[in-house]
Amino acid sequence: MFSVTVRDHLMVAHSFTGEVFGPAQALHGATFVVDATLHRPELDPDNIVVDIGAATRELGEVVGELNYRNLDQVPEFTGVNTSTEYLAKVIADRLSERVAQGAMGPNAQGLTSITVTLHESHVAWARYQRDL
């Protein structure tokens, strides 16, 4: 399996509901390093996994939709604990839609999965992988 990873970062504000979150139940900020890894079993006709420039651009646009936002005020997240794991899935799903729409080029149709990792710090991160 071949893979290419592109990186960006994300800064949000949010709060959580539930005792398990302790002090994070209050509104707080979070900064993530975001890695999107695109997988395919064989290289495309150009001997690449995906156009890195296109993948970087699309990740930047997806992250840009969330960046510097209070997620508690975003209608689609009403009543949702926007945990690191959950946000990794949101980003992976949005990237998947962009691949399906051809935003990463026609050869990106050969991608088989996307893994999104959100690094909360140098000692903690969460990951979501989805098939395409």
Results as ranks from 00 to 15, higher is better:
residue 73 Q to H: 11
residue 27 L to D: 03
residue 45 P to V: 06
residue 29 G to E: 07
residue 82 T to N: 08
residue 105 G to Q: 06
residue 88 A to K: 08
residue 102 G to F: 10
residue 90 V to C: 04
residue 101 Q to M: 10
residue 31 T to A: 15
residue 48 I to G: 06
residue 69 R to T: 14
residue 45 P to I: 06
residue 38 L to A: 02
residue 81 N to Y: 08
residue 48 I to C: 13
residue 102 G to V: 04
residue 43 L to K: 09
residue 41 P to R: 10
residue 49 V to Q: 05
residue 91 I to Y: 01
residue 24 A to E: 12
residue 50 V to I: 06
residue 103 A to R: 10
residue 79 G to H: 13
residue 88 A to S: 15
residue 79 G to Y: 12
residue 63 V to A: 08
residue 88 A to H: 05
residue 108 A to H: 05
residue 110 G to N: 14
residue 50 V to F: 00
residue 44 D to Q: 06
residue 109 Q to C: 07
residue 85 E to C: 08
residue 64 G to A: 14
residue 62 V to Q: 01
residue 81 N to V: 12
residue 41 P to V: 02
residue 109 Q to V: 11
residue 101 Q to K: 14
residue 59 L to F: 02
residue 61 E to I: 11
residue 45 P to A: 13
residue 43 L to Y: 03
residue 33 V to C: 11
residue 28 H to Q: 12
residue 62 V to C: 02
residue 34 V to F: 01
residue 19 E to D: 14
residue 42 E to S: 11
residue 97 E to G: 03
residue 16 F to E: 01
residue 66 L to T: 12
residue 64 G to Y: 02
residue 27 L to M: 11
residue 88 A to D: 04
residue 100 A to I: 02
residue 64 G to F: 09
residue 26 A to H: 14
residue 103 A to V: 00
residue 96 S to L: 10
residue 55 A to V: 03
residue 100 A to V: 10
residue 74 V to E: 15
residue 30 A to F: 13
residue 58 E to T: 04
residue 66 L to V: 06
residue 84 T to A: 15
residue 98 R to H: 11
residue 35 D to C: 07
residue 44 D to P: 07
residue 105 G to A: 09
residue 89 K to I: 00
residue 59 L to S: 02
residue 42 E to Q: 14
residue 57 R to D: 13
residue 86 Y to P: 03
residue 43 L to S: 04
residue 104 M to R: 00
residue 50 V to C: 00
residue 82 T to V: 14
residue 101 Q to W: 03
residue 82 T to M: 12
residue 38 L to D: 02
residue 96 S to G: 12
residue 87 L to E: 07
residue 60 G to S: 05
residue 34 V to A: 04
residue 58 E to C: 05
residue 104 M to L: 15
residue 73 Q to Y: 04
residue 29 G to D: 08
